[in-house]
Design a protein around this nucleic acid. Structure first.
Lengths: 110, 110
DNA sequence: CGTCACTGTTTCCAACATGGAAAGCAACGA
DNA sequence: TCGTTGCTTTCCATGTTGGAAACAGTGACG
């Protein structure tokens, strides 16, 4: 179950990115603007953090022009979920307390 | 009562300090060298981090010359424990998985 | 066709955090 | 007095961050 190998991940740890991952871990996809609002950062800052997560292979950025609108949705990749789980597992070890952790694969059912 | 109000703490969050607090939270006091070894950092680095925690009022540094040896013990202050608990609570919040969380077992001090 | 609005993206930049190495210090034993 | 133990502080080079603003892609409009 919570068998993710504890592993600290510097790409995920920084506050903004930890929040982004936390949000995405709870859903399949979320829109850029929704994440920006939830994390409370500027467009540029979110864009930069997302870029880092994307380059790490943790987040998938999907751009779609729907209804005459540009929409960018973000989602954790399988690798991203695994890394997030591993990081959370490591945080739990560090604080030696049960941090609720979303389960890789499980969260979205697939 | 592990009922801390979730509150992100930038002083605690950085990896080295999160580890230091995690270690200290589990005990009454720990020696400087033991912490240094556990966190795997150099003397100077640990000293600097401890200093920050100390200035934040989270860690108490007690120096004692016992048995002809200088020994510095570290301990979380009451404030430090509260801040740590609050931070951990916030991490839980960030990481929580609405769709998959088993149950808030953590809530009950256990 | 030119311009506007909406959405991110990239650049510029200044402030800060961090770690390693090494010099400093205080206390104590030889 | 010198050497050792055990942190502290300084020096320094690097990496990260966020805000502001310029920029770019896409469709809407007159």
């Amino acid at each position: 179950m919570t068998a993710a190998v504890p592993r600290f991940d510097a790409v995920i740890h920084p506050p903004p990115r930890l929040q982004i991952c936390g949000l995405l871990a709870a859903v399949d996809t979320m829109e850029f603007s929704a994440v920006r609002d939830a994390v409370a950062v500027s467009d540029s800052v979110l864009s930069k953090h997302v870029k880092q997560l994307e380059e790490a292979g943790y987040v998938a950025v999907r751009k779609a022009t729907i209804a005459s609108r540009q929409r960018t949705s973000l989602a954790l990749t399988k690798t991203g979920r695994a890394a997030f789980s591993a990081h959370v597992a490591e945080l739990r070890r560090i604080v030696e307390a049960p941090l609720d952790a979303p389960q890789g694969g499980a969260g979205t059912g697939r």
